[in-house]
């Protein structure tokens, strides 16, 4: 089962409908037991960072999310869900976030008055690294974005895809171990978005962790 975490941060219907289109068993839930038992977890969200963090705290879900990530469960962040897995956001005068991946979230500062805030629409993603969730997705594929702030992870190794907007070339896909997170909305990005979601649903990151552990042991030897 795929758990779609419900924390009152926007509309989750499209995420569920996209999963249904793919024939996946997905449930919108805020029950920690169900979230911890899920095979895959999607952490979506639209809205503002501060109120999202406050709600997650009120619902007792911050620890659940950290636990899911620690357990090695495949975890997909989307939009605001991606931003708040970083450590800190400039939004709402500065908001401490969950801190699963090192880095911050920054506001676009366009110099051209026709670069509108939010960025709204289809923009291309330049793939930086191979990843099982990005398999079969062509270089420069376009995805649907709606956001005013963008993720800036500290470790360049985490950057799986980049996108340019309003003088910034930002990390539009970030990933680390069993976590992958997109600034765009795969659930609203037509067939290429469905491809990404389908890859995610088939992703067994333990395999990579296992392989990298073997690789590391080999290097140490």
């Amino acid at each position: 089962m795929i758990a779609i975490i419900d924390y009152k941060a926007g509309n989750l219907t499209s995420v569920k409908l996209a999963c249904e289109t793919l024939g996946l068993d997905a449930e919108i839930t805020r029950d920690p037991t169900k979230i911890l038992a899920a095979d895959h977890v999607i952490f979506p969200g639209v809205g503002a960072a501060r109120s999202a963090i406050t709600t997650l705290n009120d619902l007792g879900l911050i620890d659940t999310i950290k636990q899911v990530v620690q357990n090695g469960t495949p975890f997909l962040g989307i939009c605001l869900g991606t931003q708040i897995v970083l450590e800190f956001s400039e939004e709402n005068g500065g908001t401490e976030c969950i801190g699963i991946i090192q880095g911050t979230v920054k506001l676009f500062t366009p110099s051209n008055p026709f670069d509108k805030i939010p960025q709204m629409g289809w923009n291309s993603v330049s793939l930086q690294k191979a990843h099982p969730v990005l398999e079969g997705i062509e270089e420069s594929s376009e995805f649907y974005f709606v956001h005013s702030y963008y993720p800036a992870p500290t470790d360049p190794e985490c950057v799986l895809g980049t996108t340019s907007y309003a003088n910034a070339e930002f990390a539009s896909i970030i990933g680390k171990d069993n976590v992958i997170a997109t600034q765009f909305h795969p659930e609203k990005s037509g067939r290429v978005g469905l491809k990404l979601l389908s890859n995610f649903a088939n992703w067994q990151p333990s395999t990579i962790n296992h392989l990298s552990a073997i690789a590391q042991r080999a290097t140490e030897d």
């Binding site: 219907t13 499209s14 409908l17 996209a18 249904e20 289109t21 649907y144 909305h185 659930e187 609203k188 990005s189 037509g190 067939r191 978005g193 469905l194």
Partner: peptide, 8 residues
């Protein structure tokens, strides 16, 4: 409509 299409 929401069931039929996967764009905004």
């Amino acid at each position: 409509v929401a069931h039929a299409i996967r764009i905004p």
